[in-house]
Structure formats: structure tokens, C-alpha cells
Design a protein around this nucleic acid. Structure first.
Lengths: 249, 249
DNA sequence: CGGCTGATTGATCCCGGTCAAATGAGGTGG
DNA sequence: CCACCTCATTTGACCGGGATCAATCAGCCG
């Protein structure tokens, strides 16, 4: 069940860390953002739709913890996950400019998020220039990621697709401080992974086994461990420049 | 060869029409935009790279006429066209916020475009609120299109992919006034089309022949004619809501 | 213990890739 | 005007990666 939450506890840390990696923020900007976040905290359980295709949008949501994914479905049920939304990331900055949204957003895990109403958000953007730039950067980064997914879906072979997704998620979790050595949380089902890579569940399962067999990764109990990141990147034909927006941190 | 151009002749019409369809513009905004466009006109021949992966960006380019495409290439040469850029569309609004760009932009035909330097562009955005919103909308629209491409590449069958691409391009050319009845210009090679749909050239060719055989389309001399748009959309499992940003015009 | 969801395995099939060659359409220089 | 070259489209034959169908297995929860 979705419910308002009142706990705090440095929840906004992931967001702040990530924004700092995107764009230097002034102290005032950090304060204002933190403030806005703490005013509208919410929780959602796993498998809940935060946004459904066709909904109108009138607020911005920022994920403090947990994973979500954006997805689209064809009439006959074929589904494509078009991106994951990780802690610290924004669901839909500026999306209120659209009349309705073109895709759904569903939680993969329990999620904590902040909701900032449109008017509040616009005021924040107007008063904090560095913050507005950071949100703009985030939108551009999303665009870049989406383009990379296009080549992943269109041109990479099954093993490369899955390896690439693992590399990307790992690199996106890094600036938020959510990687621990060479492993990170990976709380999605193989069905979700299949829909994110455009494969069938059966073939996805076999592909993961192949990655395991070659010793490149371990995936157990919702934890991904990458034995040799460079080797995995090489197997994925991974090129990092689409994530360069993240400054070295 | 790329070269500065001095001719005018209502060249900015496609841009203005499209922006109006995106977002109502004030007369002042239109004037200022037109002015900025006419100050920096350029031409490029077909097959030229306007932007290469890894380039830094310090200006915004707006296409007045001609087609371009964004593409990414893997080490071993596999290429994916991740989107087309059509007349009236912007190459890279705000992209100067990125240190370098993650993909290349190449002309598919002779192209006329306007180049607005970053400083000039930012001044324009600051002084014309409706214009800034329109550019923001365009970025969001790009995002939405990119997501739709993900499901196209990941989940649609070959015939559906090609049919869907045809529908989308047709609908994107419509607000710019570049469709004529049920046909429009379609100046790309089958190789490009293959790389845009994630198919091989051979199979793309057979797919087009199938679309021809079923009487859905004609594609001759770089002109696409859609006999029955509804039928084509139905064959493509096309859902228009990702392009809803375009107001009815 | 039964029911459910998710992971795994096996067997078979087919869509779309690959390789190779032929045809066509401009363009160019002699 | 023709021979020749290049690039795009088309066709044919064959192959294989990944889809599909169908069970089985493993946790987990009530």
C-alpha cells in the first residue's frame, strides 16, 4: 500500500550524492532540495504502479530507496521495460509539461520516494539555478541511457545484452554509493530482466547461466557480483561514454 | 561540403510550425527565434557527420530542411540508428551541458540548418519563457520517442517494426506540413532502415516487399505512400499516445 | 499440506541472420 | 553513345540463435 511516511534519517542522501555527481550544487540548493524532499515522503510496496500509461502528471517524484522500472505494453501483452529507476533518480522531472504520460512506472521492490508538487518544484527551479541545471542534466542523461538501450535491444546478441545491462546498472549505482566492492543489490526477477533485454524468460535464464559458467558474474539472492568488471564490459562491448555525465567521484 | 548560407525565403517555417504544434509561442518568441535562426544558416551535403560521438558541443542546431539520423556503432561495426531528425527538429538543445556527446549525427540528405551558439541560445531561453518551455517539451518528446523505439526494437516482429517506423515518421512529418495526402518523402536507403529497425538489410528488404504485397504501402523513388493509415497502424500495433505532445493542428 | 511465484531444464520450431550472387540505376570518362 | 564503376535493391539457399511449449523443481506463505 502506498502511504505517507514521516521518518527521516538522512534518507535524502542518495539523492544529494547523485546530484552532486551530476552537477556541483550550491549549499543553498542542497538545503532547499532536502527540505522539499522531506516535506513529501511516501512509501510503496513492490509491484505497485506509481504511474500508469495515460495518466496526467502534476508532480515530480524522486526515489530515495528501492528500484522501479518504466515499461510499455503492446495490446497483446508483450512488454518492454524501457529503463530502470534507481535510488537517487527522478521519475519524471518536467513531465508535467506533457498532457499525459506515455509509459507506466512500477515498483520492483519496496520504495521510498519524495513527491514534490509542480508549483513547488517550479519555484525551486526558479530560485536555485544549479538545481535546475542538475535536473536538466538528469533529463539529458536519461536520454543518453535510452539511446544506449536502443543499440542494446537492436544490435547486441543475448549474452552481450545481459552483460551490458549488468555493467550499466553497476555503474549507475556507483555514484549513489550503492555498490559494495564488486557487488551490488539486484532485486529484479528474471522475467523483468527478460523484458528489459527483449529476450524470452527461458533464453534469459540460459544466458545468465552462461555468464555464470564463464565465471563473469554471480547472481544469487538478489545480489549481483561481478568477478571481473573489465572482462564483463568487454563481453558486453560496453563503452562508458554515455554515462560520462557522472563526474568522477 | 558544409558551408554558410545566406539565402532566406521563409526557411524557418518548418521550425515555427512545429514549435507552435508543441507549445503556443508568443509573437515575440517567434520573432526572436526566427531572428536567431536567420543569423546562422548552414548547409550540409548528404552523408556528412554534423556531430561525431565524443565531440564537445557548444551550440544548438535546428534543422530547416532535410533528414538526419542519430546513430551509435559498436566496436565491430554493428550500427544502430537510434532516431531520425526531421525538418523543424532540434539536434541537441541543452546538450552543451554534457561534456561530450554519446552518439553521432549524420545527414541522410542535403540539409539546411541553423546554428545558435550556446550563449545566444541561453539568452534566448532566459528572455522568452514560452520558447524555453517549447525546447523543454521537445526534449521530453525525444525521450518519449526513444522509449517507443525501445519497445519497437525489443518486442515487435520485423513487419511490425517497419510498419511502426513508417507510421511514426508520417505522424512526425504531419505537423511540419511535410505530408501530402497519404504520402511523404522518405529519403533513406534500405540499409539505413535496417539499422533503424535492428534488422539485416536482406530481411528488411523482404519485409518491405511483404508490406507492398499486402497493399499497405508503396515506397518508390524515395516517396512513401500509405494506402490505408489505419490498417498500417493496426499492423504495427501503433499507439499514438507517445506523440500526443503535438497538439492537433 | 496445498497453492503460488520464480528458476530451471528439455525438446522442437521458425524467424530472421548470413553468405553469395544477380540485377538495376546513376554517374563518369573516353 | 557506350563501357565501366559504384552503390542500392533484390533473390536464392542455408543456417542458427533465440522463441515457444511443456514440465519439473525450489522457496515461501497461509
Amino acid at each position: 500500500m502506498r502511504s505517507q511516511s514521516t521518518t527521516d534519517g538522512g534518507l535524502a542522501q542518495a539523492v544529494i550524492r547523485r546530484f552532486h555527481a551530476l552537477r556541483p550544487l550550491s549549499d543553498e540548493a542542497v538545503g532547499a532540495l532536502e527540505q522539499a524532499i522531506l516535506e513529501g515522503l511516501f512509501r510503496a510496496g513492490p509491484g505497485e504502479d506509481l504511474v500508469a500509461e495515460g495518466d496526467p502528471i502534476d508532480s515530480v517524484r524522486i526515489v530515495l530507496s528501492g528500484w522501479l522500472y518504466r515499461h510499455k505494453t503492446l495490446e497483446d501483452g508483450r512488454r518492454q521495460i524501457v529503463n530502470f529507476i534507481l535510488p537517487g533518480e527522478t521519475c519524471d522531472a518536467h513531465a508535467y509539461l506533457l498532457s499525459t504520460i506515455d509509459h507506466s512506472i512500477t515498483t520492483a521492490t519496496p520504495v521510498t520516494y519524495a513527491e514534490i508538487k509542480r508549483a513547488r518544484f517550479e519555484k525551486l527551479m526558479a530560485s536555485e539555478r544549479t538545481l535546475a541545471e542538475a535536473f536538466m542534466c538528469e533529463t539529458l542523461l536519461n536520454n543518453a541511457i535510452q539511446r544506449e538501450w536502443a543499440i542494446n535491444l537492436g544490435r547486441r546478441a543475448a549474452l552481450e545484452k545481459v552483460a551490458h545491462l549488468f555493467c550499466e546498472i553497476y555503474e549507475r549505482l556507483r555514484p549513489v554509493g550503492l555498490v559494495d566492492g564488486n557487488s551490488c543489490s539486484f532485486p529484479v526477477t528474471q522475467m523483468d530482466l527478460a523484458d528489459a533485454t527483449g529476450l524470452s524468460v527461458v533464453h534469459l535464464n540460459r544466458t545468465i547461466q552462461e555468464l555464470r559458467a564463464t565465471g563473469l558474474i554471480t547472481l544469487r539472492e538478489r545480489t549481483l557480483t561481478i568477478a571481473d568488471l573489465d572482462a564483463l564490459k568487454s563481453a558486453a562491448l560496453y563503452s562508458p561514454n554515455y554515462l560520462q555525465l557522472y563526474r568522477q567521484v
